[in-house]
Simulated assay, not measured.
Amino acid sequence: MAKRIDLYQEASKRMAISQDARMERIRRCSISSKFGYESADPASLAAIVEMDADWGAAAFAELRSTGFIKTDWARFKWYQPSGKELDDKIAELAAIEAAAIIRLSSMDCAPALPAIRALAENFLEEADGGDTIATSLAHNRMMLAIVSATGELRLMEDYVKHASVAVAYAVAARLEAADLEGMKRSANVIVDLIGTTEPRDCAAEAVAMRLHPREPVNARGIPLSEAARLPDRSPPEAR
Rank of each mutant, 00 (worst) to 15 (best):
P81N: 08
S82T: 15
S82D: 14
G83M: 01
K84Q: 14
K84F: 13
E85D: 14
D88V: 07
E92I: 02
A95T: 00
I96M: 13
A98L: 00
A98H: 04
A99C: 02
A99P: 00
A99N: 05
A99I: 00
I101T: 12
I102G: 00
R103G: 00
L104S: 02
L104Q: 05
L104R: 05
L104K: 00
S105Q: 07
S105E: 02
S106P: 00
S106T: 09
D108T: 05
D108S: 05
A110R: 13
A112D: 15
P114K: 02
R117S: 02
L119V: 00
A120M: 13
N122I: 01
N122T: 11
N122H: 13
L124P: 01
L124Y: 01
A127R: 08
A127K: 06
D128E: 11
G129M: 06
G129P: 08
D131A: 11
D131F: 12
D131P: 05
T132S: 12
I133G: 11
A138L: 03
A138S: 14
N140R: 12
N140T: 04
M142E: 06
A145C: 02
A145V: 12
A145T: 04
V147R: 03
A149T: 08
R154F: 13
L155M: 14
M156I: 06
Y159R: 01
Y159F: 09
H162E: 01
A163S: 14
A163M: 05
S164M: 08
V165N: 07
A168F: 07
Y169H: 15
A170N: 10
V171T: 14
A172C: 04
A173R: 11
A173K: 11
R174V: 06
L175D: 03
E176L: 07
A177H: 03
D179W: 10
D179V: 08
E181F: 01
E181Y: 05
G182F: 06
A187W: 08
N188C: 13
V189L: 06
V189D: 14
V189E: 15
V191F: 02
V191Q: 11
D192M: 08
L193Y: 11
G195D: 08
G195L: 01
T197D: 10
T197F: 02
T197N: 11
E198V: 05
E198I: 10
P199C: 09
R200W: 12
R200N: 06
D201W: 15
D201A: 12
D201P: 03
D201N: 14
C202T: 04
C202I: 01
A203M: 07
A204Q: 15
